[in-house]
Amino acid sequence: MSSVRELGIWAVAGFGGALVLAGCASPPEGTSSGRVPVGWSTPAESGDARVLPDDLVGFSDFWAQALMRDLPEVPRLRPGPERTTIVFGDIRNRTDYMSSEEFEFVRERIKDNLVKSRTFTENYRVLIDKQQLEALRAREVNNPNVGERIDPNNTFLMNGSMFRTGRGDTHLYYFNFELVDFSTGEIIWSERYEGKRYGR
């Protein structure tokens, strides 16, 4: 019995010693923890098979620039005496790949880029949808009812879907945008903007 007990004691000692040695092993090489420039690709991002966060920034910036370039060329959207209203409507993630958080980042950054452009906001105004506005007013304003805020004859819904397709090592990310006449439901404009990535 005592020999069994001693055997157990030595087993525990050996286990503890092995753990100590494991703790003293060299750390994996890589970036030290802390801030890194946004434009750098860290080993974690390179080793992860998913799209790079920097690409999400690039996609949203590129697509916003494309909208700012192309929308004024749409006949019904040509600048006029009154600013045209664009309501962000049904914008969907159809990539079957990106998380909802990643997609919402892209969607909101597109909207933010439009608002940041003075040239764009001189002729267009971007509205949040009515459901969001009602929630804001219920929280902040004594009268939560939303009054008349748009001219249906000069308002358009911005709908869209983001896709990811491809096989093998190359994938295509693209965004289909469409503008819908608020009063009739007519699609007055539709365009697709692409971005290609190798390996993700």
């Binding site: 994996p28 890589g30 801030r35 920034v57 804001l136 805020r149």
Partner: peptide, 20 residues
Amino acid sequence: AASGEVVWSDDLLLKRAAVG
């Protein structure tokens, strides 16, 4: 708060890395 127009927006991006 009346129309829902976004009159100003901006974002700050930053990245943090950790190992171990």
